[in-house]
């Protein structure tokens, strides 16, 4: 079993938000994660957004650094920040698994509130990304961030997880090129970002 990295705090059919267990360290943008959905059902999703904000929406964060204490020292001097701030990440569901059956359909129900989010192991990433139909789901979803950044981040991350699998990257890039062919500026942004030869 892989590492638990967060707990779901907002959830609907097309997106869920989890609070990261590590302050300021949400999972990488574009990484594949999975959420427990009860029994042997899992929801796979791609991290599309990460943020660290004040726990109390009414009280925004404010400056804490001093000329002689900044960055990491701020946290040492203010251990209460661990409780005043939290880090959240948004996940776009792109597939699911029931028992051993993996599919690239989004699950019929959203993952339950307060259930756990896990990182995916490289083998699981490899297995899930073997077919690339989910890229279409991702590219057409309502994203909290520009689609080209999410796609580029996901391609680069998966390429690394698959042990720098250039063939996969090229096929995936072609798939993305097909999806974004009406909008060449976005497409080129993805291609320049993922280009392993650059």
């Amino acid at each position: 079993m892989t590492e638990r990295i967060g707990e779901i705090i907002e959830t609907d059919s097309f997106t869920f938000v989890a609070e990261s267990f590590a302050l300021n360290r949400p999972p990488a943008l574009g990484s594949l994660v999975k959420a427990q959905a009860g029994g042997d059902t899992w929801v796979y999703g791609v991290v599309a957004f990460g943020e660290t904000v004040s726990v109390d929406p009414g009280r925004g964060a404010m400056r804490r650094s001093r000329p002689d204490a900044y960055d990491e020292a701020v946290y040492t001097r203010h251990p209460e920040l661990e409780h005043l701030l939290h880090t959240k990440f948004t996940v776009i569901p792109v597939g699911s698994r029931v028992g051993e059956r993996m599919s690239q359909r989004i699950p019929p129900q959203p993952p339950p509130m307060h259930y756990s989010v896990y990182a995916c192991a490289p083998d699981e990433v490899r297995e899930f990304s073997e077919r690339r139909l989910y890229l279409r789901t991702l590219a057409t979803a309502q994203l909290p961030a520009p689609v080209e950044h999410v796609l580029a981040a996901h391609l680069t991350w998966t390429y690394e997880q698959r042990g720098r699998d250039e063939a996969w990257l090229e096929q995936a890039a072609l798939e993305v090129a097909g999806l974004l062919q009406q909008d060449v500026e976005r497409l080129l942004a993805v291609l320049y970002a993922v280009d392993p030869e650059a």
Partner: peptide, 25 residues
């Protein structure tokens, strides 16, 4: 697929980008 590719051909392709573009956009 996009008129912008005709009006302003992108420059400085790496072989990877040109491989992906040809056959898609």
């Amino acid at each position: 697929s996009d008129a912008r590719l005709i009006a302003k051909p992108p420059q400085g392709f790496t072989p990877f980008v040109s491989r992906v573009l040809s056959g898609s956009a």
